[in-house]
Design a protein around this nucleic acid. Structure first.
Length: 735
RNA sequence: UCUCCGGUCGUCCAAUGGCAGGACACAGGAUUUUGGUUCCUGUUAUCGGGGUUCGAAUCCCUGCCGGAGAACCA
C-alpha cells in the first residue's frame, strides 16, 4: 500500500508532456527567474475551433499549473484579412472554455516599438530596403536546390536604408514598391533565413490603428518581439512554425530583446472532421452549414450550441496529450469525453422521437396517474418531477417489431415490457391502416399489480420502454446531428482523382424531427439546458430557437447502443458470410448453429464439417430467418471434460446423465440423448469428452443441464459421444 | 533531388539504458426499472537491418515510411 502510494505520487510528480518538462527544467535551474508566462495568439480572422481549444488548454493550462500568467494577444499584423467581428467571439469562447487571460494585448499596440527594432537592425547593418518586386524576390531567393542571389539593393548604406524606411512609413511609396528585409543568409537550406521580409507597404485600414500606418510588420518579425515585449517565457505554437524558430531566435538576439523561447507541438486532427480555417469558412460561405455556430461545426461556438460542455472539451484535451507526432485523434474519444461529463450532470427526461400510439385497454378512460419520477434515478437526492400517465400513450416506433428476432426484448405481439417508472404491459393487438398496412396503434393490457414497474411475482421483464402520455404530451422539434463527413479523413486527396473535401459531406448529418412528443417538464427547460432523453441520448435546448411554446432540442451525442451495434454486426457478418442467402448456405455450419440457437436441445449434435446422420437431416431442415449468425456459432466455447460419473436417467427413454469435470473446481451435470449407444453409461467414466461450456444452464424435467457433449455417428450405428484419451486436462480449450 | 521534424497496441499518449503502461475503441462477463451507467476480465504495439551494452523502445550507423519547408499569410 505504501509502495502503491509512493508510486502514485511519483506518477503525479512527473511532468505530463515534453513542454512541461522544459518548464520544470527551467524552474529547477532558475532560468527566467522561476517565472512562467505564456500567451495565446489568435489571428482575428475566424472562429476558434477544437484545435484552438487544444492550444488554449496548453497555454493557459501550463500558466495555471505553474502559477504563471497567460496573455491573450491578437496577432493583427495583416489588416486586409482581419476583422473586429471575430474579436468578441474569440474572447467569449475562451471564457466559456473556462480560462481568463492575465492581460489582453494586440500586436498592433506594439507597432511603434517594432518599428524601432527595425531601425535598430538597419543601424546594425542587418536590414535593408529592397526595391525588387514580389516576383523578383521570389526568383532571387532560389529554391531548395538552387542557392539564392543577392538583391542589387542589398548593400545600401545604413543612412540610405534609414531614410528610405522612414519614407516608407510616411507613405511615400505605393503598395509593393519597397520592402524591408533582414540580411541573413541567402544560402541557407532554411528558406526562412534567405533574407526574410520584415515590413511591407499596405495602404489599408486597420481595425485598431486605423490609417496611422501604411507599413505593417510580418508575422516572423512581429511575433518574437511581441512575445519579448510581454516577457513571455514560453511561446508555444504548432509544428508548422518549427522552421521559423531559427528566425525567431535571430530577431531576439539581434534586437537584444527578452529571450522568449518558442516550443512547438503537433496540431490536433480529428477523424471525420476538417479543421482548417479556410475549409470551415468555405462551409459557412457556401451554406453547407447554417453558420459558424452550426452544431455540426468543430468550432467552439458550434460545439457549445450542440451541447458540449467546457469540462468535456478540457478533459478531452487532457487525454489526447501533447507531443510532436503528426496524429489523427479518433472522434470517438471526444464523444466519450462528452458522454462521461453529461452522464453525471444531465437530469433524465422522457421524449418520444418517432411516436406510436399505445392504448392501455384496462386503464379507465380519462383517468390520470401522476407519477413522481426521479430526475437522477441513481441519486434520488436530486428530486423528482411529475410524470402523468393515462390510457393512451406514445412509445417509440422503433421499440416495436411485429416479428421479434433473436435477442429482441422490446415490444412485439404477445410480449411483455416495462413502461419506465410506470408498470408492466403486454401487447395484445396491432392496429393497421387497412390501405397501407402501416402499424398505427398498439393495444395492450397492464398488470394492475405492477405499478411502479416491479413484477408482483418476481418474473423477469427485460425490456423497459420510455413513453409519454398523449393527452399531456408537448410537441417538440428535435434535431439529430451526426458527423459532417462520412469518411475518416475528408482532407485526403488522391493525385489520380482530385476530390474536394466537400465531396465527402455526409448528406445525413442533420435529421430534423418536427413532431416529437416530450414529457411536460421538458417545456420549461431554459435555452442551452442539457438533459438526457432516457434510452436515446444527450440533448440540449437550442440556444437560439428553443422556447417554452416551441421547444427545440439538439442531440449532442447518442447513448451507446449495444443493441444497434449487435444488429449492425449481425447484418455485416451475414453479408460477409453469405448467410441469409439460401444459395450460398453451407449445410453443416448452419445446421449446427440452428441447434445452438434453439438453445434447449440436450441432444448432442454433429461437429461442423462431419458427415453423417445429422447432416442428412438437412434435407428437411428449414433455415431460420436471419436470427443467428456464423459469429454466434464462433462464440461456442468448447472445453475438454473428464467424465467422473455416468448413469441412466430414470423415466427417460433416451437420456443418460454425465457428471463432467471441466476444470472449474466443481462438476457439471450434462444430459445426453444417446442411451441407445450407451446402454451402460459407466463405460464413459474416465473418458475425455468435448463439452460446449458456455450455454445457459437449461432446466429440464430431470434436472439442470449445464452444457452439451459433442457427438457424431453414422445412420446405422446411431450417435456416439466424441471421446478421446491423452494428455488434455479438464477445462482445456478445444479449437 | 535538398533541409528540418517525427515513427510504440486499431487510435492517442507514457516508459528519459533495467518487468513496454494508461485512455479510447473492440471482445467477453457481472450488476441494472435506460440494450445507458458502474464493475471485472481479455485481445492487440516498439518501422526494417546492422552496431554499442550484462541489458536498447531509448544511444550510434543505415535504409524505409509520414509530416513540414521556396506567401509582400499567420
Amino acid at each position: 500500500m505504501d509502495e502503491a502510494a509512493a508510486l502514485a505520487a511519483d506518477q503525479v510528480a512527473r511532468p505530463s508532456d515534453f513542454i512541461r518538462e522544459f518548464v520544470e527544467e527551467d524552474l529547477r535551474t532558475g532560468k527566467s527567474c522561476g517565472r512562467v508566462a505564456t500567451r495565446f495568439p489568435p489571428e482575428p480572422n475566424g472562429y476558434l475551433h477544437i484545435g484552438h481549444a487544444k492550444a488554449i488548454c496548453i497555454d493557459f493550462g501550463i500558466a495555471n499549473q505553474y502559477d504563471g500568467t497567460c496573455n491573450l494577444r491578437y496577432d493583427d499584423t495583416n489588416p486586409v484579412v482581419e476583422d473586429v467581428e471575430y474579436v468578441d467571439a474569440i474572447e467569449a469562447d475562451i471564457r466559456w472554455l473556462g480560462f481568463q487571460w492575465a492581460s489582453l494585448h494586440y500586436a498592433s499596440d506594439y507597432f511603434e516599438s517594432i518599428y524601432e527594432f527595425a531601425c535598430l537592425l538597419i543601424r546594425k547593418g542587418l536590414a535593408y530596403v529592397d526595391d525588387l518586386d514580389e516576383e523578383q524576390i521570389r526568383e532571387y531567393r532560389g529554391n531548395f536546390y538552387v542557392k539564392g542571389r543577392e538583391s542589387p539593393f542589398r548593400d545600401r548604406t545604413v543612412d540610405e536604408n534609414l531614410e528610405l524606411f522612414k519614407a516608407m512609413r510616411e507613405g511615400a511609396f505605393a503598395d509593393g514598391a519597397k520592402v524591408l528585409r533582414a540580411k541573413i543568409d541567402l544560402n541557407s537550406q532554411n528558406m526562412n533565413l534567405r533574407d526574410p521580409l520584415l515590413y511591407r507597404i499596405k495602404h489599408a485600414h486597420h481595425h485598431r490603428t486605423g490609417n496611422d500606418w501604411c507599413i505593417y510588420p510580418m508575422y516572423d518579425f512581429a511575433h518574437p518581439l511581441s512575445d519579448s515585449l510581454e516577457r513571455i517565457t514560453y511561446s508555444i505554437c504548432t509544428v508548422e512554425f518549427e522552421a521559423h524558430r531559427p528566425l525567431y531566435d535571430w530577431f531576439i538576439e539581434k534586437c537584444d530583446a527578452f529571450p522568449s523561447r518558442q516550443i512547438e507541438f503537433a496540431r490536433l486532427n480529428l477523424t471525420y472532421t476538417v479543421m482548417s480555417k479556410r475549409k470551415l469558412l468555405q462551409l459557412v460561405q457556401q451554406n453547407r452549414v447554417t453558420g459558424w455556430d452550426d452544431p455540426r461545426m468543430p468550432t467552439l461556438a458550434g460545439m457549445r450550441r450542440r451541447g458540449y460542455t467546457p469540462e468535456a472539451i478540457r478533459a478531452f484535451c487532457e487525454r489526447i496529450g501533447v507531443a510532436k507526432n503528426d496524429s489523427v485523434v479518433d472522434v470517438a474519444l471526444l464523444e466519450h469525453a462528452v458522454r462521461e461529463d453529461l452522464n453525471r450532470r444531465s437530469p433524465r427526461m422522457m421524449a418520444v422521437l418517432k411516436p406510436l400510439r399505445l392504448v392501455i385497454e384496462n386503464w379507465p378512460e380519462g383517468e390520470t396517474w401522476d407519477i413522481q419520477a426521479p430526475n437522477f434515478p441513481e441519486d434520488p437526492s436530486h428530486g423528482t418531477r411529475t410524470l402523468p400517465f393515462s390510457k393512451v400513450l406514445y412509445i417509440e416506433r422503433d421499440d416495436f417489431k411485429e416479428e421479434a428476432v433473436k435477442g429482441w426484448f422490446r415490444l412485439s405481439p404477445g410480449a411483455e415490457v416495462r413502461l419506465r417508472y410506470a408498470c408492466l404491459v403486454r401487447c395484445t393487438g396491432v392496429v393497421k391502416d387497412p390501405a397501407t398496412g402501416e402499424v398505427v396503434e398498439l393495444r395492450a393490457t397492464m398488470d394492475m399489480d405492477s405499478k411502479g414497474g416491479n413484477s408482483p411475482d418476481g418474473r423477469t421483464v427485460r425490456g423497459t420502454l420510455h413513453w409519454v402520455s398523449v393527452m399531456h404530451a408537448v410537441d417538440a422539434q428535435v434535431r439529430l446531428y451526426d458527423r459532417l463527413f462520412n469518411v475518416e479523413n475528408p482532407n485526403a486527396s488522391n493525385p489520380g482523382c482530385p476530390q474536394s473535401f466537400l465531396d465527402f459531406l455526409n448528406p445525413d448529418s442533420l435529421e430534423e424531427l418536427p413532431c416529437c412528443k416530450v414529457e411536460p417538464a421538458l417545456a420549461s427547460v431554459a435555452p442551452g439546458e442539457r438533459v438526457q432523453f432516457e434510452r436515446i441520448g444527450y440533448f440540449c435546448a437550442d440556444s437560439k430557437d428553443h422556447s417554452p411554446s416551441r421547444p427545440v432540442f439538439n442531440r449532442t451525442v447518442g447513448l451507446k447502443d449495444s443493441w444497434a451495434r449487435a444488429e449492425r454486426k449481425g447484418k455485416d457478418s451475414l453479408k460477409a458470410k453469405g448467410v441469409g442467402d439460401p444459395a450460398l448456405n453451407s449445410g453443416p455450419a448452419l445446421f449446427a448453429a440452428a441447434v445452438v440457437n434453439a438453445g434447449e436441445s440436450s441432444v448432442p449434435v454433429a461437429a461442423p464439417g462431419q458427415s453423417g446422420a445429422s447432416v442428412q437431416a438437412l434435407a428437411d431442415f428449414k433455415p431460420l430467418a436471419a436470427q443467428i449468425t456464423i459469429d454466434d456459432f464462433a462464440k461456442i466455447d468448447l472445453r475438454v471434460g473428464l467424465v467422473k460419473e455416468a448413469g441412466l436417467v430414470e423415466g427417460a427413454k433416451k437420456l443418460i446423465r454425465l457428471c463432467v469435470d471441466v476444470g472449474e473446481g466443481h462438476l457439471r451435470t450434462v444430459f445426453a440423448g444417446i442411451r441407445a449407444a450407451y446402454p451402460d453409461p459407466a463405460v464413459l467414466v474416465g473418458r475425455r469428452v468435448i463439452v460446449v461450456a458456455n450455454l445457459k444452464p437449461r432446466e429440464m424435467k430431470f434436472g439442470l443441464s449445464e452444457g452439451m457433449c459433442l457427438a457424431a455417428g453414422e445412420p446405422e450405428t446411431g450417435l456416439f459421444v466424441a471421446t478421446f484419451d491423452g494428455e488434455a486436462r479438464p477445462g482445456d480449450k478445444v479449437s
